[in-house]
Amino acid sequence: MDSLTFLLSGTILAATPLLIAALGELIVEKSGVLNLSVEGMMALAAATGFIVVSATGSHWLALFAGGIAAMLLSAVFAVVVLFALGNQVASGIAVGILGLGLAGLIGTPYEGMTVAPMARAPVPLLSDIPVLGPGLFNHPLIVYLVPLVAVLLWWMFRTAKLGLVIRAVGESPESAHAVGYNVLAVRFAAVLVGGFMAGVGGAFISVVSSTLWSDGMIAGRGWIVIALVVFAMWRVERVVLGAYLFGMFAIAELLVQSMGISAPSQLLTSVPYIATIVAIALLSRDGRRIRLNAPVSLGRVYAGTH
């Protein structure tokens, strides 16, 4: 496989879990909740997915189980911040640590084991294109489905009523409540859906792209996901762009090493984080723009239930 094909195919595989998890986190943040437990949710899902695929051999079941596991964890977070009115930042960190702990615990007997890769579904005709075909169109089916989810969400937040309700709840929970929407229910659902999607992303890493389990294998990707949502200024189309960009950096690191160029790989790994800091600074310097983009009530406790 020549290096361009490797770069394309590797980028797609690295970007897909980031994309699905970031789209989930986008939904959560649009509803006004900042869930910082993504790293823990992805780790728990990766462990759960790996165990399920080892036991059943079904990769689809593994992805689903990973999603459910992370969703259950996100339910703990949701109860703490929505019903117990906990501080979102501290609760997210704590639930994240909890998830990492649970992942390490249930994954212990599987440490270092591998599973069979997921069956590929080459796209007819397109996969025969030289270089591009094997790079872009010769992946497991789930890889093509994730961008479709992005399209669906893009449409939802633009025009569908559900998307507008989520946005209203995130912009001004008091107003949304006043016009009759149930703020807590919308946020609870958003956190669960976001948790499920983070879980699919986490399970993707252990059962599709790396096909192995090792404690700590999520290796900061949950933080990249949070960076990604901010980098994308809470816009679906930019999350897609950012995910493939950040995915490419992850692969470029391997490529650069294999080509013997002595750029420190740690610098490449840091690029997404640095880019995000720059993006936050650029976006925030203009007060109007940040208000137009960031959900206004993000991270704030909402206690008006009566």
């Binding site: 906990g86 909890l98 649970l102």
Partner: peptide, 13 residues
């Protein structure tokens, strides 16, 4: 060793 993380999470929750 992972139980430490679990107990830390439970503590704050």
């Amino acid at each position: 060793y992972a139980v430490i993380g679990i107990l830390q999470g439970v503590l704050l929750v």
